[in-house]
Amino acid sequence: MIKKKSLAAPYLVWMVIFMVVPLLIVIGYALTDKSGAFTLSNLTTIGRYSSVFARSLILAAEATVICLILAFPLGYFLSRLRSSKQHTMLMLIMLPMWMNFLLRTYAWMSLLENNGLINKFLGLFGIGPFNMINTSGAVVLGMVYNYLPYMILPLYTAMTKIEDSVIEAAQDLGASSWGTLTKVLIPMASPGIATGITMVFVPSVSTFIISRMLGGGSNLLIGDLIELQFLGNSYNFNLGAAMSLVLMVIVLLCMSFTNTFDEEGLEGGAM
């Protein structure tokens, strides 16, 4: 037998060159000042931006919850269709993703603008205009719109593994629809739920395009803040690196949280 470990070697090299080394550089920047001397002041000054961090986390959490609420019933519905229909429906769900991300977000801009399509349409009936663009709601909408398929797919995949007879067994044993949902469907779909949460939350919390285009200046997110440090007026690599580091830790914490939730769901059965 060839050592199977050797098969991972190319990726390992890739990892070291393009992930581990850059990460070390980021850490290096985060812990030094402009002259290159060691300092913790980058990390301590982040406290000033806690409102931005909080806003990012809250908006990303809102988007994740909305995605979950939309995707869960849909995933169940899809998983109960006949397999030929399932493929068609999945294609339709993926369809918007074939369009460029920027273009999609621009489209929302022109829809939500004060003299955009929606307000013009409502204006025909004498309603509005509403201020929709440059609000936190618009940012959440953009997140949900762009990342919803990443919630649907893992949920759908997890639910295809739940056989009809298991759901029938729950009803047979006295579970109402609510009981079947909470005691069987959600626990059994929990691997998909955990994956979906990670796949929506992580890009949402670090996005800067959506917030800049739909959120205006008042809805700055961590992503925007980091971008400013590297490309914008602030221009402070060291602070930007520190922010990235803190964001990474937050994301890791969130992921480990969803993973423990996932494992509990799988093994369950605490007596």
Binding site: S165, V166, A169, G268
Partner: peptide, 15 residues
């Protein structure tokens, strides 16, 4: 009534 299903249909997430 209670049913015993063809392929058992046990709950895999429970012991």
């Amino acid at each position: 009534v209670n049913t015993v299903f063809q392929k058992y249909a046990l709950f895999p997430h429970l012991n």
